[in-house]
Nucleic acid binder design. Sequence first.
DNA 1: GGCGGCGGTGATACACTGTAACAAACCCGC
DNA 2: GCGGGTTTGTTACAGTGTATCACCGCCGCC
Lengths: 161, 161
Amino acid sequence: MHRHEGHAACHADADDMLARAEAVCRERGLQFTPLRRDVLEAVAESGKAQGAYDIAERLSAPGKRVAPVSVYRALDFLMEQGLVHRIASRNAFIPCAHGHAPGEGVIFLICRSCGGVDEASSVEVEGGLGRTLERAGFTPVHSILEVEGDCGACRERMQAP
Amino acid sequence: MHRHEGHAACHADADDMLARAEAVCRERGLQFTPLRRDVLEAVAESGKAQGAYDIAERLSAPGKRVAPVSVYRALDFLMEQGLVHRIASRNAFIPCAHGHAPGEGVIFLICRSCGGVDEASSVEVEGGLGRTLERAGFTPVHSILEVEGDCGACRERMQAP
DNA sequence: GGCGGCGGTGATACACTGTAACAAACCCGC
DNA sequence: GCGGGTTTGTTACAGTGTATCACCGCCGCC
Ligand SMILES: [Zn+2]
Ligand SMILES: [Zn+2]
Ligand SMILES: [Zn+2]
Ligand SMILES: [Zn+2]
């Protein structure tokens, strides 16, 4: 199970993310182009899930426009390499700092107050889900598990304003 | 745990669904209007998840057009009453024949081959998820769990064509 | 050097999904 | 009949994602 440790830590993570991404791409013989780098950085810098159009706007500057379609292509690439996750319930994207094992289930903890998204995993949930699917005669290919609620920090902030 | 028993059973379910929906609305003092009835019927008749625009098109006839916005409103109502589920990973809707207990988690089994969606539930998964969230200091409000894969019928069909 | 394939990007247009705002119709109790 | 809440129609718009084609840069090959 993994937790973000606050915005400072997230920010520090951004550089790590970029270094790791470059290593992953080099290792797999893929190109970590400037656009892909910028998109990943934009996703990693903000502590919350970013929409593709938000990223496009953030990367655009007067005179240099980045079209959403380019962002989508970069995101597709980054998702294939496991560097970014898509949050289906938000139509948004987050960076992934954990090299997940293939087939490992991920639980997204989405805070409705601060918009932050943490990742967790649980062998208990995974095992139970596997048994449930087997009983149902269903062969899984991939699954999404997203929980919306209040993160610890926001809950404390609400109790003692 | 629940399984569809094929298209014939789904079709038979449609009438039951409508009767149950009418009973639920009467009991809660809500209106089960013709539009809401038609939308629920459209969702229930097809064995697969339907998009809002698909439903609008299906309900439209030459001379009588049903706008998507009307379908969305009916779907919102039906979802509030627990008669319809939204499948976030598909932007689509399915009927629900099981009166879920409040707070009960639902697992959607989405067949990538036939497009059918079954519902399952598992106290094991639910308990494991609850403990995982508690460890993470996260207070859940609601969660979605959707699994894409191959249903039993489609897997058999693929093995022996 | 020239050439052709290949992956990445730019640019435009388009399809699909969902919501806001306002007016008209409907229902129901007074 | 009247007033007020709910439902529906209609239009317009915002947000999300994809198709298509052209262009560029790179690298291997002739
Ligand atoms: Zn991850
Ligand atoms: Zn929070
Ligand atoms: Zn259900
Ligand atoms: Zn199937």
